[in-house]
Simulated scan of single mutants.
Amino acid sequence: MSAEKLQKYLIYTLLILLTLLSLLPFWVVLVNATRSAEQIQQGLSLLPGSSLAYNWQALTSKGFNVFQGFKNSFVIAFFSTILTLYSSAIAAYALTAYQFKGKNSLFALVVGLIMIPPQISLIGFYQFMLRLNLLNSFLPIILPSLASPATVFFLKQYLETIYHPDLADSARLDGAGEIKIFHRIILPLMKPGLATMAIFTFVRTWNNFIMPLILINDAEKYTLPMLVQLLKTNVYRTEFGSMYLGISLTILPLLLIYLFLSRYIIAGVTAGGIKE
């Protein structure tokens, strides 16, 4: 075997091992969702158990409204992701394609906002929403997604690597307006970058716990992370299996979103590597 082939096999082996290690925590959670509390306490196992039905019954008997939680989490995550991607794409395009006074200062402000922890504004934001009478609503959770400095920064850096002024100039010569140029040319061009940020944004908003916990009091509007932390256990028995099942239900949609959007990332990287 040549040295080149040996090196290739070693690289593939290392990548496979890293992939398995990254998937192992997810698999353990899914497996524990099918095991009983006694089996989980006995130690780690990679083989599924036979207590899935019992864990589901124990989970739903504790007031864990799975379908309502899915609906609430999906509404928040979906609309937050759409608003974040669209508004950030417009901002990134403006900072990349147009020249105007104060452009560099504005971009520096965007970078500076990334460094500010969102937790320091929780009290002020809560008081502001209280005065607007928007508590116990999804709006104060979704609308702030219009301003996402980290997404703007990423999309601007991505757009600078693929954007060429001739694309917009050619469209203007054909009579296209700025809005049409953005929707017909720029957005399709940004698909890989948008898919990447869609994954991160959806995961972040799906797992968001602090903000809904502060703003929502109605149990019918609880998200899945809120329902998971509300799982009650009695004094004599802790239903670890049902708790793992609740956690698994919050993970599965994220895996599906990643599998769906990852093909756009791969397609974008492949297209970028082809010389025409």
Rank of each mutant, 00 (worst) to 15 (best):
A92H: 00
L21I: 14
G246R: 02
I90H: 05
I257S: 10
F125M: 12
Y222C: 04
K101T: 11
P165G: 07
A108M: 15
V152T: 11
G112M: 12
I186Q: 01
N55S: 05
K5V: 05
R172I: 07
T151L: 08
I40H: 01
N72E: 14
I214M: 14
L135M: 13
S36T: 06
F107K: 08
S45W: 02
V111L: 15
M1L: 11
G193Y: 06
G193L: 04
L30P: 03
T233F: 14
L113V: 05
L47W: 12
A147T: 11
L159I: 03
M115C: 14
Y158T: 03
A198N: 04
L261G: 09
Q127S: 09
I40E: 00
S105F: 15
S145V: 02
P144M: 09
M129E: 13
L24Q: 09
Y12G: 03
K62D: 15
I266L: 14
P212V: 06
S73R: 01
I142E: 00
L173Q: 12
I247N: 01
I116A: 12
I179F: 11
L254S: 06
I185T: 11
A195F: 00
L20G: 10
S248D: 01
G102A: 09
K101R: 12
E276A: 14
D166Y: 12
S242G: 13
N136C: 14
L122K: 08
M197S: 07
A147M: 13
S73C: 04
N217M: 10
K221E: 11
K71D: 02
M226R: 11
Y9Q: 13
Q57M: 14
P225H: 04
P188S: 04
K103R: 15
S137L: 00
V75L: 06
T233G: 08
T161D: 15
K103N: 11
L85F: 05
T223S: 08
F240A: 04
T238V: 13
V269N: 12
P212E: 06
Y9L: 13
Q99E: 15
S61W: 07
L259F: 13
L130G: 13
L259G: 13
S242E: 07
E160V: 03
W27I: 15
N104Q: 11
A171S: 12
F200T: 02
L20C: 15
T238S: 10
N55M: 07
S145F: 02
I251H: 01
M243F: 11
P188D: 00
V31R: 03
I185G: 03
P225V: 04
S61I: 02
G177T: 06
L135G: 07
L30I: 05
Q157H: 15
L17T: 09
T151H: 02
I123T: 13
I142F: 00
V31L: 10
L52E: 01
A168W: 01
A77D: 01
R184F: 08
A37N: 03
V269H: 12
L85K: 00
P48A: 00
K8I: 08
